[in-house]
């Protein structure tokens, strides 16, 4: 009996909730499990489209109740848990051993659950009621910074992606990610989970391709509010940080740590959320 011919998947970008090819039609070839696959190679124009989608999604996302955002982020963990075979397979194809893939997927899901619980606590932990010396009710509290461009490190493809993006999104920001070209499969599998987890279109936008090509566009973009860059290339980081000064983006920059870092306790925390919020002080009169 003839063997069934499998159906292969086209590897696309994820912009504004849709899976799209690069506007340029360009792809890049990568070797995955002995097979050559072509993934979409995002261009500067795709990056700009993604920023537009992220900006459009931002108002709706930040205005959701924190509880609702928490539920949606938790839903992402649910979806990933039920699809963990697919994630493990994707990581396996890219070269991870079965146990390493299992560990990375588990750690990624657990991290998402951890942040799901943060959504409705950020404001409580980062707010102050200020004892001003005048008859005013005075509070300082965090708000999302806006659209954040993320350049995660190449590895671990799934866990680093989750660890950088999820805390940024859970406070109400939207993100555009210039993902690693080394393992587009992990990024795309994550996109599929995002697409089915009730995360509104445009909140998380994932671009595959070469960060060196698209990250400068994001770093210089006047409608991007913050930049999160992880790289082992110091000059690359410096270049992006410099471009980001044009509209005074908030910048978190970090040398790509060793892979073991990402499974440790230091790879999650309130200080992963804090760089991407703005503190707003409101003075309200008190009197009769």
């Amino acid at each position: 009996m003839a063997q069934r011919l499998s159906v292969r998947k086209t590897l696309k970008l994820f912009i504004g909730g849709s899976f799209v090819r690069s506007e340029s039609g360009r792809t890049f070839a990568c070797e995955l499990a002995g097979q050559t696959v072509h993934a979409a190679r995002a261009t500067r124009k795709d990056a700009r489209d993604a920023v537009r989608a992220a900006r459009a999604a931002w108002a709706g996302w930040r205005e959701r109740s924190a509880y609702n955002r928490g539920q949606i982020v938790y839903r992402l963990a649910e979806i990933m848990e039920t699809r963990r075979d697919q994630f493990e397979q994707a990581l396996g194809i890219a070269g991870a051993s079965a146990t390493a893939a299992q560990r990375e997927v588990s750690a990624s899901i657990d991290r998402i659950v951890w942040y799901a619980g943060w959504c409705d606590k950020i404001e409580q932990v980062l707010s102050t009621k200020n004892p001003v010396a005048s008859p005013h009710f005075n509070v300082s509290s965090p708000e999302p910074t806006g659209v954040v461009a993320v350049v995660p490190p190449p590895a671990p493809a799934l866990l680093a992606l989750v660890s950088t993006c999820v805390p940024i999104v859970c406070s109400g920001n939207t993100v555009v990610v210039a993902a690693s070209h080394e393992d587009p499969l992990a990024t795309i599998t994550f996109a599929e989970a995002v697409a089915t987890a009730d995360i509104p279109a445009g909140v998380i936008n994932l671009l595959t391709g070469y960060a060196a090509e698209i990250a400068p566009t994001l770093a210089a973009h006047m409608d991007v509010n913050a930049l999160d860059v992880w790289s082992s290339d110091g000059e690359f980081i410096e270049k992006l940080a410099e471009l980001a000064t044009d509209n005074l983006k908030r910048v978190r920059r970090h040398a790509a740590p060793r892979e073991i870092f990402w499974s440790g306790a230091k790879a999650q925390g309130l200080d992963w959320i804090e760089p991407f919020v703005e503190i707003k002080t409101v003075w309200h009169p008190a009197g009769v």
Partner: peptide
């Protein structure tokens, strides 16, 4: 905006955070 005054303006207090969004800078 980093500081919003309701029915008042240009009020400052050492216990109250002050600083900008966007191109008004960063840090409080």
């Amino acid at each position: 905006a980093g500081v919003v005054w309701g029915n008042t303006f240009n009020k400052f207090d050492p216990s109250s955070a002050f600083g900008g969004y966007k191109e008004s800078g960063f840090g409080r």
